[in-house]
C-alpha cells in the first residue's frame, strides 16, 4: 500500500486504483488518520475514484477482426451478428 501511494494515480490499473480507494475509505471511516493527513488521503481517494470512473465510462464495444495483409495481420472493424 505504501509503495502504491507513491505511484501516480494515472499509472494505476483499474484494479489497483479500486483496491487503494477501498483502503482509503476504510481508513478515513475508521477516523484513524490525522486531520491533515485525512485531507491529503481524501484528495488521493477522489483522484482514484475519478480515475476508476474514467476507465468505466470510456467503455465501448468495438469489434474488429484480423485480416491477413501483405505486411502481416492488420485489424478492420467487423460485425458478427
Amino acid at each position: 500500500m505504501a509503495d502504491a501511494k507513491e505511484k501516480p494515480v494515472d499509472k494505476l490499473t483499474f484494479e489497483e486504483a479500486l483496491a487503494e480507494l477501498e483502503i482509503i475509505v476504510r481508513q478515513l471511516e475508521a477516523g484513524e488518520v490525522e486531520l491533515e493527513k485525512s485531507i491529503a488521503i481524501y484528495e488521493r481517494g477522489a483522484a482514484l475514484k475519478a480515475h476508476c470512473e474514467s476507465r468505466l465510462k470510456s467503455a465501448e464495444l468495438k469489434v474488429e477482426q484480423i485480416v491477413q495483409g501483405a505486411n502481416g495481420p492488420t485489424t478492420e472493424s467487423a460485425n458478427f451478428d
Binding site: L18, L28, G31, G45, E53
Partner: peptide, 21 residues
C-alpha cells in the same frame, strides 16, 4: 456494478471526511 461500487466509495469518502473534519 463497478460504477456503483466506485460511486459508493466516493460517497463514503465524502461522508468520512466530513465526519473527520
Amino acid at each position: 456494478e463497478l460504477l456503483l461500487t466506485t460511486g459508493e466509495h466516493g460517497e463514503r469518502l465524502k461522508r468520512a471526511l466530513a465526519r473527520r473534519t
